[in-house]
Computed example of a mutant assay.
Amino acid sequence: MFNLHVENKQIFVGDVRIVGVASSSVFLIGDTEVISLSSMFDTPPEAVIISPYIPVPGEG
Rank of each mutant, 00 (worst) to 15 (best):
G60F: 06
I35K: 11
G58E: 06
E59I: 05
N3R: 08
I50Y: 02
S51T: 12
V26W: 02
I50N: 01
S23C: 06
I54K: 10
K9W: 05
L28D: 13
E46C: 02
I11P: 00
V19L: 11
A22F: 06
P44L: 03
V56N: 08
D42Y: 01
V19S: 12
E7A: 15
S39P: 00
V56P: 00
D31Y: 01
V13I: 14
V34I: 15
V13K: 06
S38V: 05
S25K: 04
N8E: 06
G20N: 08
S38N: 15
E46N: 14
E59T: 09
E7K: 15
S23F: 08
P52H: 03
G58F: 01
S24L: 07
T32Y: 05
V48K: 01
S25F: 06
S39A: 15
M40A: 13
P44M: 06
S36M: 11
G58K: 04
S23K: 11
V56D: 03
I35W: 02
G58V: 04
E33T: 15
I54H: 04
S38Y: 07
E7Q: 15
I54A: 10
V56T: 12
P52S: 10
I54C: 05
L28H: 11
D31A: 07
N3W: 06
V19N: 14
F12E: 10
T32N: 12
H5M: 11
L28C: 13
S24C: 09
I54P: 00
S25R: 12
F2C: 09
S36W: 04
I49Y: 01
A47H: 03
E7I: 14
S39C: 09
P44K: 00
S24M: 10
S39Y: 09
G58Y: 01
P57R: 04
S51V: 01
Y53L: 08
I35N: 10
I18A: 15
T43E: 07
Q10C: 08
E46W: 01
I54L: 13
